[in-house]
């Protein structure tokens, strides 16, 4: 499901459906200890992101405090409380990539996309983040868009890479 639509164009029925699916996920994990992260992970897949109302829904259904849910959501950088773009760009800032110019790529992308780190472009296309080492140090500097890894990125390549999306 298009995550952007969750915020703007999503109909009441779609929303209800999303909550129903989340309830099913919670049911699946009922009674299993330590399943909050799994539930949150799948809920983010279903809803696109984890706003307060989704966190409240999960806290209520799983009978755990809201602060605990929010604590876990805010701890892991892969969880987002704001709507996410269609695609996620992650520039690696691990040691190798940093040394080989990761920071320049971040600065360039900030200008190119016109958004700060952690934010989503106004057209809802890209969410722009950094990653701490994606394990592709030999290909530094690296970045990923969704599940695709781009190796030895330089400023000239970026335009062409983004055109694909």
């Amino acid at each position: 499901m298009n995550p952007e639509s969750a915020e703007n164009t999503c109909t009441v029925i779609e929303r209800e459906h999303a909550f129903e699916q989340i309830a099913n996920v919670i049911d699946l994990y009922k009674g299993k200890e330590g399943s909050l992260i799994q539930v949150l992970h799948l809920s983010q897949k279903i809803f696109g992101y984890l706003p307060l109302e989704v966190q409240q829904f999960i806290a209520n259904e799983m009978d755990i405090p809201l602060a605990t849910v929010s604590g876990v959501v805010s701890f892991y950088s892969f969880f987002s409380t704001e709507p996410r773009g269609e695609h996620t760009i992650r520039v690696c800032m691990g040691t190798a990539c940093y040394v080989r110019g990761g920071k320049k790529i971040v600065e360039h992308l900030q200008n190119h996309l016109g958004v700060d780190l952690g934010k989503t472009t106004p057209d809802g296309k890209f969410t722009f983040e950094i990653a701490r080492c994606i394990g592709s140090c030999a290909l530094a500097p690296a970045m990923t868009i969704d599940d695709t890894v781009y190796k030895q990125v330089n400023l000239n390549k970026i335009g062409r890479i983004l055109e694909k999306y």
């Binding site: 405090p65 602060a67 604590g71 805010s74 701890f75 892991y76």
Partner: peptide, 10 residues
């Protein structure tokens, strides 16, 4: 057993 406080962020 209230759970108003919890570590947030990292």
């Amino acid at each position: 057993g209230v759970g108003a406080l919890f570590p947030q962020h990292r």
